[in-house]
Simulated assay, not measured.
Amino acid sequence: MEPPPFAPTGTPRLGMGCWAIGGPFWSGDKPFGWGAVDDTESTAAVRRALDLGVTLFDTADVYGAGHSERVLGKALAGRRDEVLIATKWGNVFDETTRQIVGRDTTPGYVRRALEASLRRLGTDHVDLYQLHIGQVSPQQAEDLTGVLEELVIEGGIRSYGWSTDDASLPPALAGPHFTAVQHEVNVLRDAPRMLALTAREGWTSVCRGPLAMGLLSPKYTSGSRLSSDDVRGDEPEWLAYFHDGRPDPHWLERRDAVRDVLASGGRTLVQGALGWLWARGSQCLPIPGFRTAAQVEENAGALAHGALTAAQLRDLDGILGRAPLSHGPAT
């Protein structure tokens, strides 16, 4: 019997997050994309990831109001059997105006959302289907479990999960084919409770924001300014790392403080940040975003270096003022 999709393997694993390649979309006058994109470049980047052995791609129906799924589906044409596709549902949007117009977490909406995602992706199934609304009551989550299990039996999905940062919530959705929690975690913002939960339950931690929305890259400095169609340029309240379209000085200072440790041993800063996640537990599967083949190559290059050492974790905890007992490796 094959292991279920997204089961922890004990070896470093890497996916690619497809939010940025969806291009602009909005909620009212607030941007929720990462600015304009070139679909040809996005396609080349996806295919370069495949060439480098990356076989997991995480998207959502709302990214670019369906555009990310369409681009990904076309880029993977003819190679679908080589990859795992994760997508999400829960946001309601208008593809024509690229506007988020609401949310729907009812059991009846799940099938409609999945059918639309399958059409855009050009496939007959997704490997991981994730609830994209982070704050749903336990009763609402339990109500969704039955239809998700039906979709597994019917073959439309292989497994399901939840994108949430609240460690108390995932058990409410955890039927037999629940395999993953997507949550924010990176070297600047650890998530010990969630990592402890996923390790205990044998679920994968799909690590969202592994590069702190790009801040864990030398590209951004105190003089950087994001465009008005970039979510970081007119940031929502939950986005911590940028303020008024610029890197937040507090987080920039913390990034610079850990730079030397992360970039040691021939790693780049980005590769060190990914190595920190692999050191936090074998269930960790980071999904850094990308726009270009060069970014994909740097991300994938982290696999050659692997996880940071326990000593490096302790050094980073000391620099960031964290207690090693609560923020050391989860396994």
Rank of each mutant, 00 (worst) to 15 (best):
T164P: 05
R158M: 01
P247M: 09
P192Q: 09
D38Y: 09
G265A: 01
A293T: 13
A86T: 14
E201H: 13
G214A: 01
S137P: 02
A330H: 13
H243Y: 11
D244H: 10
E69L: 02
H327L: 01
M16F: 14
G122A: 00
A44Y: 02
L320G: 06
S264Y: 09
V206H: 01
G265R: 02
R47T: 10
L262R: 03
G73K: 11
Q139N: 08
E82K: 15
G161R: 00
F290T: 06
L252G: 10
S27H: 08
L308C: 04
P210T: 00
A191P: 04
V101I: 14
V136A: 06
E184I: 10
W203F: 07
M213E: 15
P236Q: 14
V37M: 09
V270M: 07
E142Q: 02
S227I: 12
L52V: 10
R119I: 06
R158K: 14
D190T: 12
D234H: 15
T55P: 14
G15Q: 07
A307P: 12
W251M: 03
W162A: 03
G10N: 01
R255F: 07
G233P: 12
V92Y: 11
R314S: 12
S205I: 06
F57Y: 14
P236D: 15
N299K: 09
G328F: 04
Q312C: 03
W34M: 10
G281H: 05
V54E: 14
Q312M: 00
E149Q: 10
W162L: 10
G146W: 00
G223W: 02
D229H: 13
R254I: 02
A45S: 10
G35A: 08
A167T: 08
R259M: 01
C284K: 02
Q135D: 07
G17Y: 03
D190M: 04
Q271A: 03
K30R: 15
S264M: 05
E237K: 14
R120L: 10
A65C: 10
S168P: 00
A172G: 02
D127C: 03
G73F: 05
A307F: 06
G202V: 08
R112I: 04
D39T: 11
A263P: 02
E201T: 06
G281F: 00
L274R: 06
G266K: 02
T268I: 04
E201G: 09
Q135S: 00
Q140W: 03
C284T: 08
S163D: 09
R208T: 08
W203M: 08
E149H: 04
R322I: 00
Y109V: 08
L173C: 05
D317F: 01
A323M: 08
S168C: 04
I21A: 05
A113R: 04
T331W: 12
W89G: 02
V296F: 14
V152L: 03
A20I: 01
T331P: 14
T145K: 04
G134S: 09
T105S: 05
G233H: 12
S137D: 06
R189P: 12
P288E: 08
G202A: 01
G134I: 00
T59V: 15
D124R: 11
W203N: 06
P247N: 11
R103V: 15
R246Q: 13
T164C: 01
G272M: 07
W34E: 11
